[in-house]
Simulated scan of single mutants.
Amino acid sequence: MVGVMDDNRLYAIGEVARRTGLSVSAIRFYSDEGVVAPARVTDAGHRHYDVHAIARLEFVSTLRELDAGLEDIRRLLDGSVTLTDLATAHLSRLDDQARRIRSRRAVLRTIAKQHTEAEQVVLLHKLAGMSDEDRDRLMDDFWAEISEDLQISSDFLDIMRNGPLVLPDEPSTEQLEAWIELADLLRDPGFRREVREALHATFSTPDAAVMTSTKMVDAFKRGGEILGRANDAQQAGAPADSPLGREIAAEYTAHLGEIAETPDSPRFRRKLAADVLNIERWHLEALEEEEASGDPYARYQSLVAIIDGSAQQAAEFKPFAWLSAALTASADHTLSPGRATRECPPSGDVAEA
Protein backbone atom coordinates (compact mmCIF):
# COMPACT_ATOMS: atom_id res chain seq x y z
CA MET A 1 0.00 0.00 0.00
CA VAL A 2 1.33 3.44 -0.95
CA GLY A 3 1.94 5.58 2.11
CA VAL A 4 1.45 9.30 2.72
CA MET A 5 3.77 11.47 0.69
CA ASP A 6 6.24 13.92 2.20
CA ASP A 7 6.06 17.44 0.74
CA ASN A 8 9.75 17.99 1.40
CA ARG A 9 11.04 14.78 -0.08
CA LEU A 10 12.16 13.92 -3.63
CA TYR A 11 11.17 10.54 -5.02
CA ALA A 12 13.14 8.34 -7.40
CA ILE A 13 11.49 7.45 -10.69
CA GLY A 14 10.88 3.84 -9.64
CA GLU A 15 8.88 4.92 -6.59
CA VAL A 16 7.01 7.49 -8.66
CA ALA A 17 6.03 4.68 -11.02
CA ARG A 18 4.71 2.59 -8.14
CA ARG A 19 2.73 5.52 -6.71
CA THR A 20 1.20 6.69 -9.99
CA GLY A 21 0.75 3.39 -11.78
CA LEU A 22 2.68 4.77 -14.74
CA SER A 23 5.54 2.88 -16.26
CA VAL A 24 9.06 4.22 -15.88
CA SER A 25 9.26 4.65 -19.64
CA ALA A 26 6.05 6.72 -19.64
CA ILE A 27 7.40 9.00 -16.91
CA ARG A 28 10.61 9.46 -18.88
CA PHE A 29 8.58 10.18 -22.02
CA TYR A 30 6.61 12.97 -20.32
CA SER A 31 9.88 14.40 -19.03
CA ASP A 32 11.58 14.25 -22.44
CA GLU A 33 8.51 15.88 -24.07
CA GLY A 34 8.61 18.72 -21.55
CA VAL A 35 5.19 17.89 -20.12
CA VAL A 36 6.26 17.09 -16.54
CA ALA A 37 9.85 17.86 -15.69
CA PRO A 38 11.57 16.21 -12.72
CA ALA A 39 12.40 18.39 -9.74
CA ARG A 40 16.05 17.31 -9.96
CA VAL A 41 18.32 15.32 -12.25
CA THR A 42 21.52 13.97 -10.70
CA ASP A 43 24.90 14.02 -12.40
CA ALA A 44 24.37 10.35 -13.13
CA GLY A 45 21.12 11.22 -14.93
CA HIS A 46 18.76 9.90 -12.26
CA ARG A 47 15.48 11.78 -12.16
CA HIS A 48 13.74 12.70 -8.92
CA TYR A 49 10.25 14.12 -8.53
CA ASP A 50 8.56 16.16 -5.82
CA VAL A 51 4.92 15.79 -4.79
CA HIS A 52 3.82 18.54 -7.18
CA ALA A 53 5.40 16.82 -10.18
CA ILE A 54 3.85 13.50 -9.10
CA ALA A 55 0.42 15.16 -8.89
CA ARG A 56 0.92 16.56 -12.42
CA LEU A 57 1.90 13.13 -13.68
CA GLU A 58 -1.28 11.63 -12.21
CA PHE A 59 -3.32 14.46 -13.79
CA VAL A 60 -1.65 13.94 -17.17
CA SER A 61 -2.21 10.20 -16.92
CA THR A 62 -5.93 10.75 -16.25
CA LEU A 63 -6.23 13.11 -19.23
CA ARG A 64 -4.48 10.60 -21.47
CA GLU A 65 -6.89 7.90 -20.35
CA LEU A 66 -9.67 10.29 -21.42
CA ASP A 67 -7.95 10.39 -24.84
CA ALA A 68 -6.73 13.97 -24.54
CA GLY A 69 -3.93 14.73 -26.97
CA LEU A 70 -0.42 15.55 -25.78
CA GLU A 71 -0.48 18.99 -27.40
CA ASP A 72 -3.78 19.83 -25.69
CA ILE A 73 -2.30 18.76 -22.36
CA ARG A 74 0.73 21.00 -22.92
CA ARG A 75 -1.54 23.96 -23.65
CA LEU A 76 -3.54 23.23 -20.53
CA LEU A 77 -0.49 22.97 -18.29
CA ASP A 78 1.06 26.18 -19.61
CA GLY A 79 -2.23 28.06 -19.15
CA SER A 80 -3.08 28.56 -22.85
CA VAL A 81 -6.47 26.90 -22.33
CA THR A 82 -8.63 26.12 -19.32
CA LEU A 83 -9.69 22.67 -18.21
CA THR A 84 -13.28 23.58 -19.15
CA ASP A 85 -12.17 24.55 -22.67
CA LEU A 86 -10.23 21.33 -23.06
CA ALA A 87 -13.09 19.20 -21.77
CA THR A 88 -15.62 20.95 -24.03
CA ALA A 89 -13.49 20.56 -27.14
CA HIS A 90 -12.69 16.95 -26.35
CA LEU A 91 -16.34 16.16 -25.62
CA SER A 92 -17.28 17.58 -29.01
CA ARG A 93 -14.72 15.33 -30.70
CA LEU A 94 -16.01 12.31 -28.78
CA ASP A 95 -19.58 13.16 -29.78
CA ASP A 96 -18.50 13.28 -33.42
CA GLN A 97 -16.77 9.93 -33.04
CA ALA A 98 -19.88 8.45 -31.37
CA ARG A 99 -22.07 9.66 -34.24
CA ARG A 100 -19.73 8.11 -36.76
CA ILE A 101 -19.72 4.83 -34.83
CA ARG A 102 -23.53 4.77 -34.70
CA SER A 103 -23.64 5.52 -38.42
CA ARG A 104 -21.23 2.69 -39.19
CA ARG A 105 -23.16 0.31 -36.92
CA ALA A 106 -26.40 1.16 -38.74
CA VAL A 107 -24.78 0.53 -42.11
CA LEU A 108 -23.29 -2.78 -40.96
CA ARG A 109 -26.59 -3.90 -39.41
CA THR A 110 -28.38 -3.08 -42.65
CA ILE A 111 -25.81 -5.00 -44.67
CA ALA A 112 -26.08 -7.96 -42.31
CA LYS A 113 -29.90 -8.02 -42.52
CA GLN A 114 -30.15 -8.10 -46.30
CA HIS A 115 -28.32 -9.35 -49.34
CA THR A 116 -26.30 -6.23 -50.10
CA GLU A 117 -24.29 -5.90 -53.27
CA ALA A 118 -20.82 -4.40 -53.09
CA GLU A 119 -21.85 -1.22 -54.91
CA GLN A 120 -24.72 -0.68 -52.44
CA VAL A 121 -22.34 -0.46 -49.49
CA VAL A 122 -21.00 2.86 -50.75
CA LEU A 123 -24.55 4.19 -51.13
CA LEU A 124 -25.57 3.05 -47.66
CA HIS A 125 -22.54 4.74 -46.15
CA LYS A 126 -23.37 8.00 -47.95
CA LEU A 127 -27.02 7.84 -46.86
CA ALA A 128 -26.08 7.35 -43.23
CA GLY A 129 -23.67 10.30 -43.34
CA MET A 130 -26.05 12.78 -44.97
CA SER A 131 -26.32 16.26 -43.46
CA ASP A 132 -29.64 17.92 -42.58
CA GLU A 133 -29.37 19.98 -45.78
CA ASP A 134 -28.82 16.84 -47.88
CA ARG A 135 -31.89 15.21 -46.31
CA ASP A 136 -33.99 18.32 -46.96
CA ARG A 137 -33.02 18.32 -50.64
CA LEU A 138 -33.88 14.65 -51.02
CA MET A 139 -37.23 15.12 -49.27
CA ASP A 140 -38.04 18.24 -51.32
CA ASP A 141 -37.33 16.41 -54.56
CA PHE A 142 -39.44 13.42 -53.49
CA TRP A 143 -42.48 15.50 -52.49
CA ALA A 144 -42.24 17.79 -55.52
CA GLU A 145 -42.57 14.73 -57.77
CA ILE A 146 -45.29 12.79 -55.94
CA SER A 147 -47.51 15.84 -55.19
CA GLU A 148 -47.45 17.32 -58.68
CA ASP A 149 -51.06 18.07 -59.81
CA LEU A 150 -52.38 16.82 -56.45
CA GLN A 151 -55.54 18.83 -55.65
CA ILE A 152 -54.96 19.49 -51.96
CA SER A 153 -54.07 22.58 -49.97
CA SER A 154 -50.45 23.37 -49.19
CA ASP A 155 -51.32 23.21 -45.47
CA PHE A 156 -52.56 19.65 -45.80
CA LEU A 157 -49.52 18.75 -47.85
CA ASP A 158 -47.30 20.01 -45.01
CA ILE A 159 -49.12 17.71 -42.60
CA MET A 160 -48.65 14.74 -44.92
CA ARG A 161 -44.98 15.49 -45.34
CA ASN A 162 -44.49 15.70 -41.55
CA GLY A 163 -42.31 18.81 -41.84
CA PRO A 164 -38.51 18.86 -42.18
CA LEU A 165 -36.95 15.52 -41.35
CA VAL A 166 -34.18 16.02 -38.80
CA LEU A 167 -32.27 13.26 -37.10
CA PRO A 168 -31.60 14.02 -33.42
CA ASP A 169 -28.06 14.93 -32.38
CA GLU A 170 -27.68 11.46 -30.89
CA PRO A 171 -29.87 9.16 -33.02
CA SER A 172 -30.42 5.60 -31.97
CA THR A 173 -29.36 2.72 -34.18
CA GLU A 174 -33.06 2.13 -34.97
CA GLN A 175 -33.42 5.74 -36.16
CA LEU A 176 -30.35 5.50 -38.38
CA GLU A 177 -31.51 2.20 -39.83
CA ALA A 178 -34.94 3.74 -40.52
CA TRP A 179 -33.30 6.69 -42.25
CA ILE A 180 -31.14 4.43 -44.43
CA GLU A 181 -34.24 2.47 -45.50
CA LEU A 182 -36.28 5.64 -46.09
CA ALA A 183 -33.54 7.41 -48.04
CA ASP A 184 -33.12 4.35 -50.22
CA LEU A 185 -36.88 4.32 -50.86
CA LEU A 186 -37.02 8.04 -51.62
CA ARG A 187 -34.46 7.55 -54.36
CA ASP A 188 -36.31 4.55 -55.85
CA PRO A 189 -38.37 5.53 -58.96
CA GLY A 190 -40.68 2.57 -58.36
CA PHE A 191 -41.47 3.65 -54.80
CA ARG A 192 -42.08 7.23 -55.94
CA ARG A 193 -44.49 6.01 -58.59
CA GLU A 194 -46.39 3.82 -56.12
CA VAL A 195 -46.77 6.62 -53.56
CA ARG A 196 -47.80 9.11 -56.25
CA GLU A 197 -50.46 6.75 -57.61
CA ALA A 198 -51.76 5.95 -54.12
CA LEU A 199 -52.07 9.63 -53.17
CA HIS A 200 -53.73 10.62 -56.42
CA ALA A 201 -56.23 7.77 -56.05
CA THR A 202 -57.03 8.87 -52.50
CA PHE A 203 -57.38 12.58 -53.17
CA SER A 204 -59.08 12.53 -56.55
CA THR A 205 -62.64 12.34 -55.13
CA PRO A 206 -64.86 15.45 -54.80
CA ASP A 207 -64.92 15.16 -51.00
CA ALA A 208 -61.13 15.21 -50.85
CA ALA A 209 -60.93 18.91 -51.74
CA VAL A 210 -63.20 19.76 -48.80
CA MET A 211 -61.50 17.44 -46.32
CA THR A 212 -58.03 18.73 -47.22
CA SER A 213 -58.94 22.42 -47.33
CA THR A 214 -57.13 24.97 -45.17
CA LYS A 215 -60.29 25.33 -43.05
CA MET A 216 -60.34 21.62 -42.25
CA VAL A 217 -56.60 21.61 -41.58
CA ASP A 218 -57.07 24.41 -39.05
CA ALA A 219 -59.92 22.46 -37.45
CA PHE A 220 -57.74 19.35 -37.33
CA LYS A 221 -54.93 21.25 -35.65
CA ARG A 222 -57.30 22.76 -33.10
CA GLY A 223 -58.70 19.33 -32.29
CA GLY A 224 -55.18 18.03 -31.87
CA GLU A 225 -54.37 20.81 -29.42
CA ILE A 226 -57.41 19.93 -27.29
CA LEU A 227 -56.51 16.23 -27.37
CA GLY A 228 -52.99 17.24 -26.31
CA ARG A 229 -54.42 19.09 -23.30
CA ALA A 230 -56.47 16.02 -22.42
CA ASN A 231 -53.39 13.81 -22.72
CA ASP A 232 -51.37 16.14 -20.45
CA ALA A 233 -54.19 16.20 -17.90
CA GLN A 234 -54.50 12.42 -17.96
CA GLN A 235 -50.74 11.94 -17.51
CA ALA A 236 -50.73 14.48 -14.66
CA GLY A 237 -53.34 12.37 -12.86
CA ALA A 238 -56.20 14.90 -13.06
CA PRO A 239 -59.58 13.17 -12.59
CA ALA A 240 -61.87 13.28 -15.61
CA ASP A 241 -64.67 14.55 -13.34
CA SER A 242 -62.81 17.64 -12.17
CA PRO A 243 -62.91 21.37 -13.02
CA LEU A 244 -60.07 20.79 -15.50
CA GLY A 245 -61.90 17.84 -17.02
CA ARG A 246 -65.08 19.89 -17.42
CA GLU A 247 -63.10 22.76 -18.95
CA ILE A 248 -61.46 20.52 -21.56
CA ALA A 249 -64.77 18.74 -22.23
CA ALA A 250 -66.46 22.10 -22.83
CA GLU A 251 -63.64 23.18 -25.14
CA TYR A 252 -63.88 19.96 -27.16
CA THR A 253 -67.67 20.19 -27.31
CA ALA A 254 -67.54 23.77 -28.58
CA HIS A 255 -64.95 22.82 -31.19
CA LEU A 256 -66.88 19.82 -32.56
CA GLY A 257 -70.17 21.69 -32.23
CA GLU A 258 -68.88 24.43 -34.48
CA ILE A 259 -67.76 21.91 -37.11
CA ALA A 260 -71.01 19.90 -36.95
CA GLU A 261 -73.16 23.02 -36.45
CA THR A 262 -74.69 21.33 -33.40
CA PRO A 263 -75.57 23.19 -30.18
CA ASP A 264 -74.18 22.05 -26.85
CA SER A 265 -76.34 19.63 -24.88
CA PRO A 266 -75.90 16.63 -22.56
CA ARG A 267 -76.98 14.37 -25.41
CA PHE A 268 -74.37 15.85 -27.75
CA ARG A 269 -71.67 15.41 -25.11
CA ARG A 270 -72.58 11.77 -24.61
CA LYS A 271 -72.46 11.25 -28.36
CA LEU A 272 -69.01 12.86 -28.48
CA ALA A 273 -67.92 10.63 -25.57
CA ALA A 274 -68.79 7.55 -27.63
CA ASP A 275 -67.30 9.05 -30.80
CA VAL A 276 -63.96 9.69 -29.05
CA LEU A 277 -63.61 6.00 -28.21
CA ASN A 278 -64.61 5.09 -31.76
CA ILE A 279 -61.91 7.43 -33.08
CA GLU A 280 -59.32 5.56 -31.02
CA ARG A 281 -60.54 2.17 -32.26
CA TRP A 282 -60.72 3.39 -35.85
CA HIS A 283 -57.20 4.80 -35.65
CA LEU A 284 -55.73 1.55 -34.32
CA GLU A 285 -57.60 -0.54 -36.88
CA ALA A 286 -56.50 1.77 -39.70
CA LEU A 287 -52.88 1.46 -38.65
CA GLU A 288 -53.12 -2.34 -38.58
CA GLU A 289 -54.78 -2.41 -42.00
CA GLU A 290 -52.17 -0.08 -43.50
CA GLU A 291 -49.30 -2.20 -42.16
CA ALA A 292 -50.93 -5.38 -43.46
CA SER A 293 -51.74 -3.88 -46.87
CA GLY A 294 -48.17 -2.89 -47.66
CA ASP A 295 -49.31 0.64 -48.55
CA PRO A 296 -46.13 2.49 -49.63
CA TYR A 297 -47.22 5.77 -48.02
CA ALA A 298 -47.95 3.91 -44.76
CA ARG A 299 -44.38 2.61 -44.83
CA TYR A 300 -43.13 6.14 -45.42
CA GLN A 301 -45.10 7.38 -42.39
CA SER A 302 -43.87 4.51 -40.23
CA LEU A 303 -40.22 5.22 -41.03
CA VAL A 304 -40.61 8.97 -40.51
CA ALA A 305 -42.26 8.32 -37.14
CA ILE A 306 -39.24 6.28 -36.05
CA ILE A 307 -36.77 8.89 -37.30
CA ASP A 308 -38.38 11.96 -35.74
CA GLY A 309 -39.40 10.20 -32.52
CA SER A 310 -43.14 10.61 -33.06
CA ALA A 311 -43.63 6.84 -32.95
CA GLN A 312 -42.71 6.87 -29.26
CA GLN A 313 -44.87 9.94 -28.67
CA ALA A 314 -47.81 8.26 -30.40
CA ALA A 315 -47.41 5.19 -28.19
CA GLU A 316 -47.64 7.43 -25.12
CA PHE A 317 -50.55 9.50 -26.50
CA LYS A 318 -53.66 8.03 -24.82
CA PRO A 319 -56.14 10.81 -24.09
CA PHE A 320 -59.24 9.17 -25.58
CA ALA A 321 -60.61 7.22 -22.60
CA TRP A 322 -59.95 10.16 -20.27
CA LEU A 323 -61.63 12.67 -22.61
CA SER A 324 -64.59 10.33 -23.11
CA ALA A 325 -65.00 10.07 -19.33
CA ALA A 326 -64.69 13.85 -18.99
CA LEU A 327 -67.42 14.40 -21.62
CA THR A 328 -69.72 11.91 -19.90
CA ALA A 329 -69.06 13.40 -16.47
CA SER A 330 -69.63 16.94 -17.75
CA ALA A 331 -72.95 15.88 -19.31
CA ASP A 332 -74.08 14.42 -15.99
CA HIS A 333 -72.80 17.53 -14.21
CA THR A 334 -75.05 19.81 -16.26
CA LEU A 335 -78.10 17.70 -15.30
CA SER A 336 -77.54 17.92 -11.54
CA PRO A 337 -80.41 19.77 -9.79
CA GLY A 338 -79.80 23.47 -9.31
CA ARG A 339 -76.68 23.54 -11.54
CA ALA A 340 -76.55 25.78 -14.55
CA THR A 341 -73.14 25.88 -16.17
CA ARG A 342 -71.62 27.81 -19.00
CA GLU A 343 -70.98 24.50 -20.76
CA CYS A 344 -74.64 23.65 -21.19
CA PRO A 345 -77.48 26.20 -20.90
CA PRO A 346 -80.39 24.57 -19.00
CA SER A 347 -83.12 25.87 -21.32
CA GLY A 348 -84.17 23.05 -23.66
CA ASP A 349 -81.21 20.74 -23.23
CA VAL A 350 -82.31 19.06 -20.01
CA ALA A 351 -85.63 18.20 -21.55
CA GLU A 352 -83.90 16.95 -24.64
CA ALA A 353 -81.67 14.68 -22.59
Rank of each mutant, 00 (worst) to 15 (best):
D6M: 11
D6T: 09
N8V: 01
Y11W: 09
G14F: 01
R19T: 06
R19F: 07
T20Y: 01
S25L: 11
S31E: 13
D32A: 11
G34A: 10
V36K: 01
A37K: 15
P38V: 02
V41D: 06
H46R: 13
A55Y: 00
R56S: 08
R56L: 14
E58P: 00
E58W: 02
V60L: 10
S61K: 14
T62N: 06
D67R: 15
E71N: 15
E71Y: 10
G79W: 02
L83N: 02
D85R: 13
L86G: 00
A87E: 11
T88E: 12
A89P: 06
H90N: 15
H90P: 05
D95K: 08
I101S: 07
V107G: 01
L108F: 07
A112G: 12
Q114L: 09
H115D: 13
A118H: 09
V121E: 13
M130H: 11
E133C: 01
R137L: 07
L138R: 15
M139P: 00
D141C: 07
D141N: 13
I146L: 12
S154G: 09
F156I: 08
D158K: 14
D158C: 05
G163P: 07
L167K: 05
P168D: 10
L176Y: 07
E177G: 09
I180W: 05
R187H: 09
R187D: 13
D188Y: 08
F191W: 14
R193G: 04
T202E: 14
S204C: 10
P206C: 02
A208N: 06
M211H: 08
D218C: 08
K221G: 03
R229K: 13
D232P: 05
Q235W: 04
P243I: 10
I248E: 00
A249M: 05
T253F: 00
L256I: 14
A260E: 14
A260Q: 14
R267Y: 04
R267L: 12
R269F: 04
I279R: 10
I279P: 02
A286L: 14
S293H: 03
G294S: 08
G294C: 06
D295T: 01
Y300V: 01
L303I: 07
L303H: 03
A305P: 02
A305V: 05
I307H: 02
S310I: 04
A311H: 12
F317E: 04
P319R: 04
T341A: 07
P345W: 00
S347F: 05
V350F: 11
E352I: 10
